[in-house]
Design a protein around this nucleic acid. Sequence first.
DNA 1: TGCTCCATTGATAACTGTTATCGAACGCGA
DNA 2: TCGCGTTCGATAACAGTTATCAATGGAGCA
Lengths: 151, 151
Amino acid sequence: MEQISQVDVEARVERFRQECRHAGLSLTHQREIIFRALVEMHGHPSPESIYGEVKRQIPAISLATVYKNLKTFIDHGLTREVSLHHGALRVETNSAPHHHFVCVRCKEIFDIEEELLAPVELRRKLPEGFSLQRYSVEFQGLCRSCGEPSS
Amino acid sequence: MEQISQVDVEARVERFRQECRHAGLSLTHQREIIFRALVEMHGHPSPESIYGEVKRQIPAISLATVYKNLKTFIDHGLTREVSLHHGALRVETNSAPHHHFVCVRCKEIFDIEEELLAPVELRRKLPEGFSLQRYSVEFQGLCRSCGEPSS
DNA sequence: TGCTCCATTGATAACTGTTATCGAACGCGA
DNA sequence: TCGCGTTCGATAACAGTTATCAATGGAGCA
């Protein structure tokens, strides 16, 4: 969990500029500062915490701008959200162990029966101090309806 | 995704009653109807949709009651939430592919480097029509700080 | 360089999902 | 049946997120 090197930051920012140009996105000051903050932070920051960081450089920036840009970044694959189903609470009705397939377009969740998968194998142990209770695999892709050429 | 059989429903409701007694939870009418609705639904219902279902049998029920009971059910392991990190948006700063370890107590998310894991193997193909783009494994358990006996 | 157009910004209202509060009602053991 | 502590229902409050809209400012072109 060490700090990302300055060289890597610059490389990612440069790639970011290219992607923006390529995608027809304006290269605004706010946009770049937000992206840079994101790359320089570590872990899994919330929009609020990115806002806090960016505000130190652009005190007048609006939280809405941060939200809008994060959404833009995600839409263009410049970053990823930790979880596709972060929105609202959903509960399981299937009490048997199983995995999930989440459609990246419609966000619907499909159960994948456990035995479809060979047991997951760790090559080494988890970091010291972490005790594992269970795991499940999340598959991402297009579901039947969203994958149809007609859509 | 076929309907759960009536026999299975009754079995789960009966187990539910036992668990409630065992946990010192009152067996209220609302509680049982909510649990029954949950078991009879399929997929990954939202509190709102369970509320809609329950309301057909107890028109005067409050949405808050549904929320409170779902939380109780989850706390007692009577059902599970689909995702431990459904709350707020979080974005990745780590652009390399990786997996996640989520602490069931503090909900913190830790990155697990991809190569710690042997590639996941499917025993059979995914159901027809699903196209896979990527997958990641979510490990659940206690993190270093939450697993300490001192806590 | 200056101009024009459209994307983006900032401020803020609105919205959604969820939780807190509190008096009334009810399950449960005595 | 009684009494206590849990749960319920109604609703206010809250957090996170999105929509709205006038003002601003990139980016291509004359």
